[in-house]
Amino acid sequence: MSPTIDSTIPDLQVINAVVTRSDLELFEPVSFNCTRGQVIHMVGQNGVGKTTLMRSICGFRVLHSGQILWDNKDIEKNKNFYLNSAYLGHRDAHSPLQTAWESLHFYQQLYTPGANKGDIDPLLNKLDLLAQADVSVDHLSFGQKRKLAIARLLLSERKLWLLDEPFSGVDRAGRELIENIFVQHISSMGMIVLTNHGRLQNSQLLGCVSELELFQHNIMLKEL
């Protein structure tokens, strides 16, 4: 049941996306493409709607207008899109009632049913979390939870990573670690769309980054 990987390169197209909150358009229409080996770094001032756009790309929110295509098909109910992407939002998506290991095991079974349990420990080790394997997620620090979420991305083996503030709460060493993981992902022809305050530091990574700036929508309210 693993997602089929065909020879054609599926890529993400966002065409004139407009999102609204309480009927107000947040930013000027946004268009971009994301192809293999590319990082799209969304920037823009606070409240401009980066998270909202990210949630729209995930299909959680309905776009006001515009289109989001994966492999030239709308992402709505497009299983092919969902089985080729992984999402990390503000919420780390680890149940506080599970341990770090259990949480990863749970996702492993969801992503690739019947996968080898033994793969989890090396993954935890890669993110410096092996000592916390049997600690309840609730007792992990912010940074550790974030790193655990990155481990989940690796576990998913998906092409497209949609990351909303992946570094929040992560210390310097962790940040370098995560950027290295991004470099590996990109060099194996992965794609990343991310929002992040601050700049990315890894020079290898910077070579693949396209910045996408969101501009606040000009509200022209006529006097009523």
Partner: peptide, 17 residues
Amino acid sequence: RDDYEAGVLEQFLFTHT
């Protein structure tokens, strides 16, 4: 609520489930 607040619920969209 627990799964919703932890952000687990939205992850199911990205799986076969």
